[in-house]
Design a protein around this nucleic acid. Structure first.
Lengths: 98, 98
DNA sequence: ATATATTTGCCAAACTTCGACAAGTCAATT
DNA sequence: AATTGACTTGTCGAAGTTTGGCAAATATAT
């Protein structure tokens, strides 16, 4: 049930010696929720990523990338055709570029 | 608002000279819903894909792949970091194999 | 035992998607 | 220009899912 995003933000938070209690209010949530987010049981709202990145002194694009990757993974995690589906959108996105 | 899945099943249906009116009841829905599904405004339930594949004489894996690709695309379609996120899960899925 | 940090369980509120129906458009036919 | 048949669109309540907030539980250190 772990997520790459959750693991990353926990690592960053702990690295900065911050407690859930300190970070959660900055995101207007309680510690229980942030705990769940770090453990991948809840999703942080997309629009809160920049704020969290600044709190954790991280690159917001890096965090967003992990967050998106988790959303994608959720869809294909139990699908044997997952890789194939990924190839299909990869193509589609390439074509759409610019 | 088009989806690859929707375009495909419409193409197949039309190719078989079937009307929405004929196909929809086999999926236990009305024509309006199937029309929306073909136009990408509603999602077919994952578990109905095999039945639809058999109605349309298509390979169910092929349809499922497109269906999954549409779900993935929905997440990254407006994201400039989409390709990066896709690379990230692609890696993750490779590692998980077997 | 107490204090602090985190986790878990629960449930109502908020949000999203779906199903069903009615009314609408469009093209061909009479 | 009225009718018919195929498909589309809009609406709206129902059903389903996710979230937020609280209280209690656990864990660890003092």
């Amino acid at each position: 049930m772990d997520t790459q995003f959750g693991i990353m933000i926990r690592t960053l938070r702990v690295g900065l010696n911050l407690y859930l209690r300190q970070v959660a209010p900055l995101l207007q949530m309680d510690t229980a929720q942030l705990s769940k987010i770090e453990k991948g049981q809840r999703q942080l709202k997309r629009e809160q990523i920049p704020l969290l990145a600044s709190i954790l002194k991280a690159d917001q694009n890096d965090l967003l990338t992990l967050w998106l990757a988790d959303q994608l993974y959720e869809i294909v995690k139990d699908e044997k055709l997952g890789s194939k589906a990924i190839q299909v959108i990869e193509e589609k996105i390439k074509k759409r570029k610019h």
